[in-house]
């Protein structure tokens, strides 16, 4: 893993053994909590006094919510949107804020993106898979798992492989993009302290949004068959 070796010494995860044998990357945890806090503050600020005629932060959040609602409605239908909206919106906001966090000015505490850790990216991808199973069972009962033997029973190994490959690719795509962006940013600061890293930050901000969008879009596509099956 070339990326792993390159990241050593540049990106710090602060792996800490909190119990015997249980290692947690504390830098990742702090950043994850910070991201959660920022997301929660923004969303609560927007919804604390939600009004029919929106203003200020409510407008901003509603733009994202409305946009995601539209995407969900087109991929999963209205029923799917109603059920999955909180999950998908939270997922998008978490990844989006998390991606941009590592690009903020490094004053005081060292800020990194929680999504630069494969544990976070893979954790989110597994959460998506679990959510797909959960919604599937909620809507269709245990017969939901029958689709593993579709179109015929011999497809079972391939289907299981696909179920593993999907979250893995989602996680690696997100993690790879964000980690590479941050490593390149550090390297650029070493090579040219002015202007060039700022251009890269601008580009990375767009990448951060794009990766959050791609991850969310893939989540919707994964959820779509659950809600489409009945139609």
């Amino acid at each position: 893993m070339g990326t792993a070796e390159a990241s050593e010494g540049i990106i710090h995860y602060l792996p800490t053994e909190i119990f015997s044998g249980v290692i947690i990357n504390m830098q990742t945890m702090y950043m994850s909590w910070l991201t959660m806090l920022i997301v929660a503050v923004i969303v609560f600020a927007a919804t604390r006094k939600a009004e029919i005629i929106p203003s200020g932060i409510q407008n901003v959040v509603e733009v994202f919510v409305d946009w995601l609602n539209g995407l969900m409605e087109s991929s999963m239908g209205i029923e799917g949107r109603r059920t999955a909206a909180p999950f998908v919106i939270t997922l998008f906001l978490y990844i989006f804020i998390g991606n941009e966090l590592g690009l903020m000015p490094q004053i005081g505490p060292h800020l990194t993106s929680p999504t630069n850790d494969i544990n976070v990216a893979f954790g989110l991808a597994i959460t998506v898979s679990l959510a797909v199973y959960l919604f599937g069972v909620m809507r269709q009962g245990l017969s939901y798992f029958k689709h593993f033997t579709q179109p015929f029973a011999a497809m079972l190994p391939l289907n299981i492989l696909e179920e593993i490959a999907k979250p893995l690719t989602m996680a690696l795509r997100l993690f790879g993009n964000i980690l590479a962006g941050e490593i390149l940013l550090v390297v650029l600061y070493m090579l040219a302290p002015w202007i060039i890293p700022n251009i890269w930050i601008g580009f990375s901000l767009i990448i951060g949004f794009l990766q959050a969008f791609i991850f969310t879009m893939l989540t919707m596509i994964a959820l779509a068959p659950v809600f489409k099956a009945n139609h």
């Binding site: 990742t28 494969i118 544990n119 954790g123 989110l124």
Partner: peptide, 15 residues
């Protein structure tokens, strides 16, 4: 060092 560890579980709980 990039490795899968208990952070994965913690992150799922966080989310």
């Amino acid at each position: 060092m990039v490795s899968i560890n208990a952070t994965l579980i913690a992150q799922i709980l966080n989310f």
